[in-house]
Design a protein around this nucleic acid. Structure first.
Lengths: 229, 229
DNA sequence: TCAAAAGTGTTCGTGGTACACCCATGA
DNA sequence: TCATGGGTGTACCACGAACACTTTTGA
């Protein structure tokens, strides 16, 4: 029997495609690397997995280090295991997508040494990225395009109280196509998981829209885990 | 800058959920382990990834070593990275599902030293499995239940020429529910990716059914990569 | 009073679902 | 001639898609 320790020669990393919605545009989080390889390049937030943490735990930790936020919605979507994707050795990367609301004060604090800077950039204005991160990003986008049709992910991007038009905007940005307003409202309300509030939008110079909340309890009761948006 | 080599301390493995259809039952491939840990237990076919092969390559290699088959349809579906899933150290496993036709002579040849035996077992008669393989199997099943609705996976399980009833059987086994014969035929034919042959079933003691072929070329032309079975 | 977005119904076509009988074949 | 699966059509309903005007509000 061969020495089993020989087999422990991979590095494992996490890369996160972090989506954020600021009220009008769909953004993703990028960091500027401060370390070789790819020093000064933009990259997806990511880091090595520690041996004493699970892959999921690692993903949460890494995101927290870069945004200061915990309890962010994250989901593993693919593992990238090509040879030579990392110049320093065999690094296999498990990719996650994450979704969060961008409130006014974005709590970006790149605490890790290798990141000089973290920034939200518009999904369709992404610069050239380090490693195979361009590819990972594309795959992440494809993935949420599908998942958003079956899971109520968009509410992770929206503030607690939102208008129907905002919901529609998010869907349009993710699916990258215009939707009909009347049909969209009919459909989204037909799921009966949005609670209409007595409150209206404030501070707008036009007719104020009604605010809604996502009723998670009702969603779980009605659909278990699945739906078809 | 810390020594980067310190980070290379993971082992990476592949586990395969291999589905096969023998004409009447949906089966999966199991091996009987001949090595510790879990010596004598049944397990999903799997093995370590070598440092000089990509994760996809590794999956193909491992499956070939166990079945003698190459060019099998395989797709990565999830990466299992919990702590302590392997008693000998930190092993993270990338799981694939595979689909193949079981012809009369099943070319099972467990060439690897750690497997004593390989066997097809009915999906709903699976014994207790080593490691977290029970869990991986469940996730694999869930996955193909979804994917089979959008991708023409079932034809990987069927022989080149098949009857519509066989197609329906496979769907029923995977989705685990009865389907209406007339509706099923209407739907499956409406996609226009099945070519009706001049040939009939032979050697049956009842009315022989018409044989069909999956027209891959037409499928690609019509649907790119997606569909909704 | 104007600009900007909110809010609202109907029609049409398609696709899903439910449902039962006759046909062809080999034993 | 019998047992076994092959093969077929219709009616109803639900849902998706297309489409335009009135209302409210603050500036």
């Amino acid at each position: 029997m061969k020495n089993i320790q020989q087999g422990f020669n991979f590095a494992l990393s996490i890369d996160c495609v972090v989506f954020g919605f600021d009220g009008s545009a769909l953004k993703i989080l990028l960091i500027e690397r401060n370390e070789d390889p790819f020093k000064d390049w933009w990259a997806l937030p990511g880091n090595r997995v520690n041996v004493d943490e699970s892959v999921d735990q690692s993903a949460s930790r890494i995101l927290k280090e870069l945004t200061g936020l915990s309890d962010v919605y994250m989901e593993q979507f693919y593992t990238f295991g090509e040879l030579k994707r990392h110049p320093q050795g065999r690094v296999v990367s498990v990719a996650y997508y994450a979704m969060l609301r961008l409130s006014g004060e974005k709590p970006l604090k790149p605490l890790t040494s290798f990141a000089r800077n973290a920034q939200w950039v518009n999904v369709n204005q992404v610069p050239e990225l380090a490693f195979d991160h361009q590819y990972i990003l594309e795959k992440g986008l494809e993935k949420i395009k599908r998942r958003v049709r079956h899971l109520p992910l968009v509410f992770e991007l929206l503030p607690e109280k939102f208008t129907l038009t905002q919901v529609q905007n998010v869907y349009e940005l993710i699916l990258n196509k215009k939707l009909d307003k009347r049909n969209f409202r009919k459909k989204i309300l037909s799921f009966k998981v949005l609670k209409e509030l007595d409150e209206k939008q404030r501070g707008v110079s036009f007719r104020a829209a009604t605010l809604y909340k996502f009723d998670k309890r009702k969603y779980n009761k009605l659909y278990g885990k699945e739906i078809s948006f």
